[in-house]
Design a binder for these strands. Structure first.
Length: 276
DNA sequence: TCCTAAGATCGCGTTACCTCA
DNA sequence: TTTGAGGTAACGCGATCTTAG
């Protein structure tokens, strides 16, 4: 649901739900074979320049996983063999889906480059990988081009950045959330300003109204007010005040052309002139 | 043709880790 | 050295859509 508000010449779009992407995004409607293609093309995560600290649950000691220098695909795990780390997978056994995804990726990892530390995301408490500036820059550039990724784009980006597709996906999700949050803040500020403007306008109009009331009491009524009120009416469409009368009696009509739309609520508006 | 389960992806809210003042 | 705040990667969940059976 989206409300379009045009206040103070701003075109604000406030809504519930997504604001910049929708389910109709074409990349979400790729044929199924594209996903299969993605899986076929999945390559291993080549995390080669990060140093991770894995805190394993319960009695297992905290281990440090060092993926080594770029180009060195060996995995040094202090205190544990990589295989035993794998055995402690599923630190969060509630995520069946995650395991499913991981299993697919692992299969591909084994197929493409089995020497990678394949289980860096599978065990121990949640660990946080800080993206490098270069990676962030590339991701930002990609986000500027398209705020969502299709599977192929995701895979390509993951390969380019030596990240897992899931990490790229998560980054884009978080990035969209940040964008939306910032936009909401901007809209909020804009609405605050509009609110202030409207308050000021309201004050000004009230003051003007008081002045008009004072003038009305002090001065004799204008010509049109000397006509019995019952005979006056204003057509809301043509904004003319007429003296009433029967339809077609144009000769007896007194008309006042009003250049601009009335800024006030007009009681006449409820009684449009039959002459119009 | 309709139904249903599975899979993929999303938004949203939350958690947890990391950095820095 | 400790600590609290802020940023953000990662997670969980429900909704939606597509596809295959």
């Amino acid at each position: 649901m989206v409300f379009d508000i045009n206040i103070c010449n701003t075109r604000l779009s406030l809504g519930l739900g997504s604001t910049f992407t929708t389910r109709n995004n074409d990349q979400n409607h790729l044929p199924q074979f594209d996903h299969h293609e993605e899986f076929k093309n999945k390559s291993s995560p080549k995390i080669d320049h990060f140093s991770l600290t894995l805190g394993l649950p319960s009695e297992l000691e905290t281990i440090s996983v060092d993926a080594g220098a770029k180009g060195d695909q060996s995995c040094n795990i202090h205190g544990q063999q990589a295989s035993s780390v794998s055995a402690v997978s599923s630190f969060s056994n509630s995520s069946v889906k995650r395991e499913r995804e991981a299993s697919v990726e692992e299969v591909e990892e084994e197929r493409v480059s089995p020497k990678i530390c394949e289980d860096q995301d599978e065990e121990g408490p949640r660990k946080k990988l800080r993206l490098t500036k270069e990676q962030s820059l590339i991701l930002e550039d990609s986000f500027k081009e398209h705020s969502t990724l299709n599977p192929k784009q995701k895979q390509a980006l993951a390969n380019r950045l030596n990240l897992r597709p899931r990490q790229v996906e998560v980054w884009f999700q978080n990035r969209r959330a940040r964008t939306k949050l910032k936009q909401t803040e901007v809209d909020c500020e804009l609405l605050k300003k509009c609110c202030e403007t409207l308050k000021e306008e309201n004050r000004r109009l009230n003051k003007e109204l008081q002045e008009l009331k004072a003038m009305k009491l002090a001065a004799p009524p204008p010509l049109y007010m000397q006509i019995p009120a019952a005979t006056l009416s204003m057509c809301p469409s043509c904004e003319r005040i007429s003296s009433g009368g029967h339809v077609g009696e144009k000769s007896s009509k007194i008309s006042f052309s009003i250049g601009a739309k009335p800024r006030y609520y007009s009681p006449f508006a409820n009684h449009p002139s039959a002459a119009c």
